[in-house]
Computed example of a mutant assay.
Amino acid sequence: MPKSKRDRPITLSKTKKKGKEHKESIVNSIRDAAEKYSSIFVFSFENMRNLKFKEFREQLKTTSRFFLGSNKVMQVALGRSASDEIRVGLHKVSKLLRGDSGLFLTNMPREEVESLFNKYEDYDFARIGSTASEKVELLEGPLEQFTHEMEPFLRKQGMPVRLNKGVVELISDFVVCEEGKPLSPESARILRLLGMKMATFKLHLICRWSPEDFELYKEGLDESDVEST
């Protein structure tokens, strides 16, 4: 009699969490890179898109290195104070690693880095909970961009639609989203169907460090703020 598949042994081993060794590896990588590259930048990001960021990182991999992850781990790597910083002045960089931020270490000229970061942006569909950048309203009448098969789906998203001779039709004006308000799941789906991209993935430089100087880019900050943070 064939052996039942139910009798096969199943491994119940748990996936190991990233622990001390993983953190130490990141710290060592950052410290090695800090010795290798001539400049270190802190940058912040909004509407992160992993695929787009990977493409941007690939463009610069021959001259630069990016680090994203735990701000606390990156701070430890650089040094949190003048007494434990790995190079003179890096504790100022460490103090600016807050929120959605990362490190960019490079041998590229400062002007080239500034130009790349200032120009880089990519548009994508906004996610649920994102803030609408504008009001979107559909007016009563035919919606010829949608096929008749989509009419039940549109109704499930709260749109007042019907089929009129095989054409999807709005029976009254419909507000998809309001400027400045968070997107509901239904709003996000409708905007995607409409092809409207409201999210801008963008990187912002916060500061630059080199052995010779330290420069702040973010408005409203000065070196006294960094020292007192």
Rank of each mutant, 00 (worst) to 15 (best):
P2H: 09
P2M: 05
S4L: 15
L12Y: 13
T15D: 12
K23V: 12
K23D: 14
S25F: 09
S25G: 06
V27P: 02
R31W: 00
Y37N: 02
S38C: 00
I40S: 01
F41H: 00
F41K: 00
V42T: 00
S44G: 04
M48L: 09
K52A: 12
F53K: 01
E55P: 00
R57S: 11
Q59E: 12
T63G: 06
S64G: 05
S64W: 02
R65G: 02
S70N: 14
N71L: 06
M74I: 04
Q75A: 07
Q75P: 03
R80H: 09
E85L: 06
I86V: 08
I86H: 01
R87N: 03
R87Q: 06
V88A: 13
V88T: 15
G89K: 04
L90N: 03
L90F: 02
L90T: 04
K92T: 02
K95V: 05
D100Q: 11
G102A: 04
L105F: 01
L105C: 03
M108N: 07
M108A: 11
M108V: 08
E111K: 14
E112Y: 11
V113W: 02
V113I: 09
V113H: 10
L116Y: 02
L116A: 09
E121V: 05
A126G: 08
A126I: 06
I128Y: 07
G129A: 08
G129W: 07
S130Q: 13
A132C: 12
K135H: 11
K135T: 14
K135Y: 10
E137N: 11
E140C: 15
E140P: 10
E144Y: 11
F146E: 13
E151V: 12
E151Y: 10
P152Q: 12
L154R: 13
Q157P: 07
G158L: 08
K165E: 13
G166Y: 15
V167I: 14
V168L: 14
V168W: 15
V168K: 13
L170E: 11
D173R: 08
F174L: 08
F174A: 07
V176L: 07
C177I: 08
E178L: 14
E179P: 10
G180M: 14
S184N: 11
P185W: 06
E186R: 09
R189M: 12
R189A: 09
I190F: 04
G195S: 06
A199Q: 03
F201S: 05
F201N: 05
H204E: 00
P211S: 05
E212W: 06
Y217T: 02
G220V: 08
D222P: 05
D222N: 14
V226Y: 03
E227V: 07
E227R: 10
S228E: 10
T229F: 14
